Simulated assay, not measured.
Amino acid sequence: MKDPHPIVPLPGDAPLLSAARAWSEELARERRMAANTVEAYERDLRQFLIHLDGRLGAPTIPTVVALKPRDLRAFMAARRADDIGGRSLMRALAGLRSFAKYLEREGHGTVAALGAVRSPKVERRLPRPLPVAAARALTDAGLRADEDREPWILMRDAAVLALLYGAGLRISEALGLSRRDAPLPGTDAVTVTGKGAKARMVPVLPVVADAVAAYLAACPHPLPPEGPLFVGARGGPLSPRIIQYAVARARGGLGLTGSATPHALRHSFATHLLARQGELRAIQELLGHASLSTTQLYTKVDAGRLMSAFDATHPRAGRPVPPRDRT
């Protein structure tokens, strides 16, 4: 749903607005949050302050610190009335808690009400992996040779997608690699920087290294060691949207659904490893998940596939089991 207050400025007195600006800058600069996350947190705070303005008058820092649980519950109820889902409400609470912690660090006091309000329960969405054949096809530049694009660009896209499927990288991690750190043949592992600026080492399959080497051999642009490994058509940094667009184009030719996205290749990496008896804790480390519970979602995907296969093939599937004859 669109933001119901897309251009309304933040209400509040000067100290509150100054604190909000400083908090936002801290999220981006010191905590290195993604720009989209910072923007979402800013939007959630603005909506909350607008709500307070309507209920209690122009908000101030003392107003926020003195909030009661009922004030927060009223805000959540109002957002529910605007047809906002549980995930967005949970993010809104996370943003408000982040702002409250900032106020506390700055010596303004503790917003005790936030500790008394529970986050809404949200059913976690299951990852949507691709079949093995579809995942392999997306990483094969040869299968897209008929596209009206330069061969080196097809090789570049194939190398990026090979890193997503063959190493389980996020698209930001793959595009964040420098030329110096290119995983080439003979390389056993590559170090990537994930969420929260956390580095991890990921094994490199020979087929992935070969795809990167083929791209480098064909790339017409000079690639300085400290510069990005993957570049756009004019030699500048490669945008994730270009890779997303390339996958969207390939979907039609391969007969894939809209769930076939670059990130689905990362899901496929984890699900296919698990199906081959991969150890869950090792998969967590490969993916860079902070919590094992996130990785455990893939066990549900695998179990779901087994049940689907059972329903489709087992002679007893979907049929009532007859009672045992006790005579």
Score class of each variant (00 low, 15 high):
residue 64 V to H: 01
residue 108 H to M: 05
residue 136 R to E: 15
residue 66 A to S: 14
residue 123 E to D: 15
residue 98 S to C: 01
residue 164 L to V: 10
residue 172 S to D: 13
residue 134 A to N: 05
residue 161 L to N: 04
residue 122 V to G: 05
residue 171 I to W: 08
residue 143 L to A: 15
residue 165 Y to N: 07
residue 159 A to P: 11
residue 73 R to G: 05
residue 158 A to K: 02
residue 122 V to N: 03
residue 78 A to T: 13
residue 124 R to S: 14
residue 69 P to R: 04
residue 92 A to Y: 04
residue 131 P to L: 08
residue 140 D to R: 03
residue 120 P to W: 10
residue 169 L to M: 15
residue 82 D to E: 15
residue 114 L to C: 10
residue 83 D to F: 12
residue 93 L to V: 13
residue 73 R to Y: 12
residue 128 R to M: 09
residue 91 R to S: 09
residue 94 A to H: 02
residue 178 S to M: 05
residue 128 R to L: 10
residue 139 T to P: 03
residue 122 V to E: 11
residue 74 A to M: 08
residue 129 P to Q: 07
residue 158 A to D: 03
residue 134 A to V: 09
residue 117 V to F: 11
residue 84 I to P: 00
residue 70 R to M: 05
residue 173 E to Q: 11
residue 79 R to V: 02
residue 84 I to S: 11
residue 132 V to N: 04
residue 84 I to D: 01
residue 155 M to I: 00
residue 172 S to R: 06
residue 163 L to W: 02
residue 88 S to Q: 12
residue 107 G to Q: 08
residue 71 D to I: 01
residue 84 I to G: 03
residue 139 T to K: 04
residue 149 R to K: 14
residue 169 L to N: 08
residue 121 K to E: 13
residue 99 F to A: 04
residue 119 S to C: 03
residue 78 A to L: 07
residue 65 V to D: 03
residue 98 S to Q: 01
residue 173 E to D: 08
residue 167 A to C: 15
residue 99 F to L: 07
residue 151 P to W: 00
residue 151 P to F: 00
residue 95 G to V: 04
residue 77 A to L: 15
residue 173 E to F: 12
residue 70 R to I: 10
residue 105 R to C: 06
residue 82 D to Y: 06
residue 148 D to C: 00
residue 96 L to A: 08
residue 148 D to T: 09
residue 97 R to V: 02
residue 138 L to C: 06
residue 83 D to I: 01
residue 88 S to H: 06
residue 92 A to N: 09
